[in-house]
């Protein structure tokens, strides 16, 4: 039915849109309205409120006097800048990023390339097996690996008894493993989807030219999945800087994870003191750093992609 109608239109003269007013104003408002209202209320308003709160401070008259909120200007930001623990936690998540993301995305790319090559049998099984951990919530994954690391009930007691996986030297890698376990398969699927979209003729042409699988992967496939890698990279930057669930769970089983381990743990701890104004300033600074880093990453990779 739809096709016959559109065939009729093709013969009719094209409708002239009236230039002076917007067409379908009611529909635009109706379609955009619900999302925009919610977005303003639960995205923009909290951001504005956090910025607003960060400009205030609590003053007391004497030690036991009544607390009252007064305007403090940039005082809270000064406290954030001076807070060595906060910057140490930022550095820690950046180290975490270096320890986890290259390996995570590298393996995701390798698995995606193998699944896309004619070399591997049983593709649909591997695709699902690698992706399965994504269905495990981060908190649950952390709890579960916590058990796997614990000498008491680990199914690999030889390892858990002899290696202090939760000690200060290794606990970061123990958490890197949890994060990678969850996200490798997810990133693999995004890259794999991009690989599948490469026209098969391109690959056949390369094969006829005598290129082997490795050569095809390097010269044809990897350049083609650039945008997908950029996307996964940006989400990895955002995700790692916001790291919270895994260290929060690991605090219960490892004394090497303090309450200031990541910026978000610090925000949580600071707000439960409660020092909302300082916590708000920390949130704002963390969001700014996150946006700056992911935006810089996007710009750098785009420039590269354009040559």
């Amino acid at each position: 039915m739809a096709t016959s109608v559109s065939a009729q239109i093709a013969e009719a003269p094209a409708p002239q849109p009236p230039r002076q007013r917007i067409r379908h104003k009611g529909a635009i408002v109706g379609f955009l309205g619900p999302f925009v209202v919610l977005f303003v209320l639960f995205y923009l308003a909290p951001i504005a409120y956090a910025v607003w709160q960060s400009f205030f401070k609590v003053e007391r008259e004497g030690t036991f006097g009544k607390a009252r909120e007064v305007f403090g200007g940039l005082e809270q930001y000064g406290r954030v800048l001076d807070n060595g623990d906060f910057w140490a936690s930022i550095v820690r998540v950046l180290v975490f990023f270096v320890a986890s993301i290259p390996l995570q995305l590298g393996l995701a790319l390798l698995f995606a390339l193998l699944l896309d090559s004619p070399l591997v049998k049983g593709k649909s099984f591997f695709r699902l097996a690698f992706f399965a951990p994504y269905a495990v919530p981060g908190v649950i994954a952390a709890i579960m690996w916590g058990f796997l690391y614990s000498p008491e009930i680990s199914p690999f007691p030889q390892v858990a008894n002899n290696v202090d996986l939760l000690g200060p030297e290794l606990v970061m890698f123990a958490m890197v493993n949890v994060v990678n376990w969850v996200y490798i398969g997810y990133n693999m699927l995004i890259i794999y989807a991009a690989l599948q979209a490469i026209p098969r003729e391109t690959i056949e042409a390369a094969t006829i030219d005598g290129a082997g699988q490795l050569r095809i992967a390097w010269s044809v496939k990897i350049p083609a999945v650039g945008p997908a890698l950029v996307l996964t990279g940006v989400f990895s930057i955002i995700g790692t800087l916001q790291l919270f669930n895994e260290p929060r769970v690991f605090r219960a089983i490892s004394s090497a994870v303090g309450r200031d381990y990541t910026p978000n743990l610090m925000v949580d701890a600071t707000s439960s003191i409660p020092d909302y104004h300082l916590a708000a300033a920390m949130s704002v600074v963390l969001a700014l750093i996150t946006c700056t880093l992911s935006f810089t990453f996007l710009k750098l990779t785009q420039k590269r992609a354009l040559g």
Partner: peptide, 29 residues
């Protein structure tokens, strides 16, 4: 639909993708 402010609206929403959800938790509370 074509309407003035369309790209601006989209860009603000897209900026929302870069704002970590966790940064919103405390102000939401």
């Amino acid at each position: 639909y074509v309407f003035p402010g369309r790209e601006a609206t989209f860009n603000v929403i897209l900026g929302g993708v870069l704002v970590p959800a966790t940064a919103l938790a405390l102000p939401l509370f």
